[in-house]
Simulated assay, not measured.
Amino acid sequence: MVKPGIYQHFKGGRYQVLGSAVHSENDEVMVVYFPLYGDQAWFVRPLEMFLEQVEYEGKWVPRFEWVCDAE
Rank of each mutant, 00 (worst) to 15 (best):
V44W: 08
Y15A: 04
V29K: 08
F64R: 10
C68N: 14
Y37P: 06
V44M: 09
F10T: 10
Q53Y: 10
V22Q: 09
N26R: 11
K59V: 05
Q53L: 11
D27Y: 12
G19Q: 08
R45P: 11
D27C: 08
L18V: 10
S20D: 12
P35V: 01
G58C: 08
E71Y: 10
Y15N: 06
F64N: 00
Q53T: 13
M1R: 06
F10E: 10
W42R: 14
Y33E: 04
V31Q: 03
S24W: 08
R14I: 02
E65A: 15
L51Y: 07
I6D: 01
F10L: 12
M1L: 08
P62K: 09
Q53N: 06
G12N: 05
A70R: 04
D39C: 10
E48L: 08
Y37W: 11
P4Y: 00
V32M: 04
L36P: 00
A70N: 01
G13R: 01
G38T: 02
V2F: 02
G19A: 01
F64P: 00
G19V: 11
I6K: 06
F50D: 02
L47D: 04
V67A: 08
V2I: 15
V61D: 02
G19S: 02
Q8A: 12
E25S: 13
R14E: 05
Y56A: 15
Q16V: 07
F64D: 02
S24G: 07
Y15V: 11
E55K: 12
Q8I: 04
L18Y: 13
Q40A: 07
V31R: 05
Y37E: 13
W60T: 14
H9P: 00
E52H: 09
G19K: 01
V54M: 09
W60Y: 12
D69G: 13
E48N: 14
Y7D: 03
F64G: 00
E25K: 14
R45G: 00
Y33F: 15
G38P: 01
K3D: 12
F43V: 01
C68G: 00
E65T: 10
D27S: 13
F10D: 03
V29I: 10
I6G: 03
L51I: 06
H9L: 05
W60K: 15
L18G: 10
V44C: 14
I6A: 07
R14A: 05
C68A: 15
G5H: 13
V54H: 02
D69M: 06
K11V: 10
